[in-house]
Design a protein around this nucleic acid. Structure first.
Lengths: 147, 147
DNA sequence: TGAAATTATCTGTATATGCATCTAAATAGT
DNA sequence: ACTATTTAGATGCATATACAGATAATTTCA
């Protein structure tokens, strides 16, 4: 029997591990995207909006496993820079449809080499097997945690 | 040859995957810790400070793969609640030593069941093999990314 | 020793995150 | 049709994150 009443559980914490990984990996992507004045959050939003033209905030937030209110705020810098438009949906006037502007689409394309370099750096550090395994495991975990 | 000039790279992004995972997992730990009025960030800080009594901000930030300025801000709520003290280091008066108060130590112990429940929930979702593999892979990745 | 370089931390600014709550619009139930 | 409920999104508030730059203390070295 092991006494765990005061044992240090901190290094075992899966959440802190994921957060550390997210911080470090985010730093690397942000550094590679810095020449384009985009964060990886912003790059990811532009990519999703290009893929799902006309999507609403709620639906996109769900895809991103993100609170809708967080997405609302994250869109602000992109609106301000003129990369994204939010237009009222005539079918449901509560909803606002997201679209890329010409400028937003060009910025996304321009920044892609930065994204790719960061992506390749992480892939190289993980190695092919761990990279593939990590993708599958994380996707499965997120799927299983959808309540 | 595949044309990737406009291809949707977004779903392949390792960074967005880690961030999604961190968001979702953080929500679960935060929910389990909510009865104790602690976030997982705060719980983790208390745990580390108990383990490394007297550590300075810079050294702790390094362990947490976190910018020292972020740690400085994250300590504020814990200072305000009286769980943590920052006392000048007599050996180096630039540095401030972190310590738990009695109240902070009691809070950490009290919140442990909440942490454990969240930890077990994630372990159950991953399963033993993926859980162990994920730990090793993330730790290795973070180690390899230390510049 | 004394100036220069380095180090530890803090502040200003900006983005990222989510809960509680609000408003407006659509839908359901009667 | 009218009211009650639900839904989409926005705002207030608090925490989390990090870069640039400021400050103060230590260390280096000529």
């Amino acid at each position: 029997m092991t006494d765990t009443s005061k044992a240090d559980m901190t290094p075992a914490c899966t959440c802190l591990r994921f957060r550390k990984a997210a911080r470090r990996v985010t730093q690397i992507y942000d550094q590679h995207l810095e020449p384009y004045s985009l964060t990886i959050t912003q790059y990811g939003l532009l990519g999703h909006i290009r893929r799902f033209e006309g999507i609403g905030i709620g639906a996109l937030a769900e895809k991103l496993v993100m609170d809708p209110t967080t997405l609302t705020r994250n869109l602000r810098p992109l609106e301000r820079k003129g990369y994204v438009t939010l237009t009222p949906d005539d079918k449901d006037r509560r909803s606002r449809k997201l679209n890329l502007t010409r400028s937003g689409s060009e910025k996304l394309t321009a920044a892609k080499p930065g994204w790719r370099a960061a992506q390749e750096k992480i892939a190289a550090v993980l190695g092919p097997d761990n990279n593939a395994m990590m993708i599958d495991t994380i996707d499965q975990m997120i799927e299983d945690l959808k309540e």
